[in-house]
Structures are given as structure tokens and as C-alpha cells.
């Protein structure tokens, strides 16, 4: 089964409800606890997991994920160690890796993606690799059986959405608001964004950026999203809790409940 097929099966398996895709910062707070948190996510009801590779200069991320990345690197996180986490998690649910361009370029695109595939990762998201820069990476993913997941933004023109929607594999990561990752209160724009993106793609539409409460997750699903991505809220929980695996599991349960 290719990565795209495994992702498609996960969305299909949710039947009529939206899939829940919590984000995990690889190696945060440290290697052992990040795996424990991932297992907490799955036990709490995650359908897929987005796993972040920490990067020194994450342009698409707000303060919570930035500082978690910095802490993970300080705790010894590396690309290979994050892949080790991915490998363990992928035995339970499909894993989509979120990795900035330079970490992939540093080891060579083909080698990096071969490693990603070998770890059992189903899909790859590169937040600083727009369509124009993506061909080599997309080709390499295709050869390795990894879904290359595109990103759509509220600012994308219809012309761009059509190209992104046609190129993406597995699902379309839809950025809910212009901005970086981080908790936000507002969810009034979800329906418009989802409807615009939906018109341009045949794969599931997953909404992320700013979704930080179970009510917002519900609103995203009601707006028509096939998947809901929750990042900063959970990473903050992992940062603030004495028992991050348990409290992240409890929080994921609340998000999962809201989507039922």
C-alpha cells in the first residue's frame, strides 16, 4: 500500500465524521516523551498524526511550535531520531511528516525521502516549498510511495488552488487563516476557505492553523472539512504538563469527542 492509499483509507475509515490529525513536535520535550505523547494521541482517538521535524528557523510557525522546536533540538532531536518515532507511531496510525526544506536538502532530497519511506511515513508536508519549488521533491516522493501533501492558503488565487489541488496527494492541507501556526479564537472564515479549496481538489480537505478548542474542531467539521489538524494547543499542553502523555491524551479525547 502506498502512503497515499494508507492516508485515503484512514479518511475513509472515519466514514461520515471528520478525521482528527493532532500535530506532534518530534523530540519534544525529549525523545522518549515525544513517543509517549504520540501513543497518547492514538489512544485518545487520533486518526492520523502529523509529526514535525524541529527546525532552527521555522517561518510558518508561531511562538509555541517555535520554542518547542528549539527545545527539541537542545534535547538532541535529529532527523533520524524523529524518523525512529515515526516508525513506531506508523505501526498504529498513518504518519504525515512536517519538515522544512533545508533539513531535506541537507541530506539530499532522494536520500531524505528514501529514509522517510523506510520509516513507514505515509505523507510529507514541506511548509516552505510552494508548488513552483516542489517538482524534485514531489517526484522523489512519488518514486518512494510517499504522498506529497500540498498546502492551500486563504490568499491562494483560484488559479493556484487549481494547480495545488491537482498536484496534492493523500489530502490537501488547508491553512485556515493567513498567518503562522498558533491558537486563535475565530472560526468564522472556515466555511468559505473549505468551500473554495474543495472546488479544486478530489482528495480530502484537512483544515489546520489556529484550531485550538474542541468547539473550533467541530466548527471546522461543520464547515465541511474532512480532517481537522490541531497543533499549537497540544504542543502547549505538552510543554506545560507534568505528565504530557496523559494530559495530551485527555485533550485529544475531547477533540475526538467533538468530532463524533
Amino acid at each position: 500500500m502506498t502512503g497515499a492509499e494508507r492516508i485515503a483509507a484512514a479518511f475513509l475509515g472515519c466514514q461520515r465524521r471528520a478525521a482528527l490529525m493532532p500535530y506532534l513536535m518530534g523530540g519534544f520535550p525529549d525523545q522518549a516523551r515525544s513517543l509517549a505523547i504520540a501513543n497518547g494521541y492514538v489512544d485518545g482517538g487520533a486518526d492520523l498524526i502529523e509529526l514535525g521535524v524541529p527546525f532552527s528557523d521555522p517561518l510558518a510557525d508561531g511562538p509555541v511550535i517555535q520554542s518547542a522546536g528549539t527545545a527539541a533540538l537542545a534535547a538532541g532531536a535529529t532527523f533520524d531520531r524523529v524518523l525512529a518515532t515515526a516508525s513506531a507511531v506508523a505501526e498504529r496510525v498513518p504518519v504525515v511528516l512536517m519538515c522544512y526544506s533545508n533539513a531535506i536538502l541537507a541530506r539530499g532530497t532522494d536520500r531524505a525521502i528514501a529514509g522517510i519511506a523506510a520509516a513507514g511515513v505515509s505523507g510529507l508536508i514541506v511548509p516552505d516549498l510552494p508548488l513552483e519549488e516542489a517538482p524534485a521533491t514531489a517526484l522523489s516522493c512519488s518514486a518512494a510511495g510517499v504522498a506529497f501533501v500540498g498546502l492551500a492558503a486563504p490568499t491562494s488565487t483560484d488559479e493556484r488552488l487549481a494547480a495545488i489541488g491537482a498536484a496534492t496527494q493523500g489530502f490537501l492541507y488547508t491553512v485556515a487563516v493567513a498567518g503562522t501556526t498558533g491558537e486563535r479564537g475565530d472560526h468564522s472564515a472556515y466555511a468559505e476557505v473549505v468551500a473554495r479549496v474543495r472546488a479544486h481538489t478530489s482528495v480530502p480537505v484537512a483544515l489546520g492553523f489556529g484550531i485550538s478548542t474542541p468547539q473550533q474542531a467541530r466548527a471546522a467539521a461543520d464547515a465541511g472539512a474532512d480532517g481537522v489538524i490541531v497543533g499549537s494547543r497540544l504542543v502547549r499542553e505538552a510543554a506545560e504538563s507534568d505528565d504530557p502523555a496523559a494530559s495530551c491524551k485527555a485533550l485529544v479525547e475531547q477533540f475526538a469527542q467533538a468530532l463524533r
Binding site: 508548488l131 513552483e132 519549488e133 492558503a153 490568499t155 493556484r160 491553512v175
Partner: peptide, 12 residues
């Protein structure tokens, strides 16, 4: 060179 930025900025 190139344009290694989030999609949000590409139209800008």
C-alpha cells in the same frame, strides 16, 4: 534564489 516560502505569501 527561488521562493521557499509558505503558500500564503506566494500571491503577494
Amino acid at each position: 534564489g527561488g521562493q521557499y516560502v509558505p503558500e500564503t505569501l506566494m500571491p503577494a
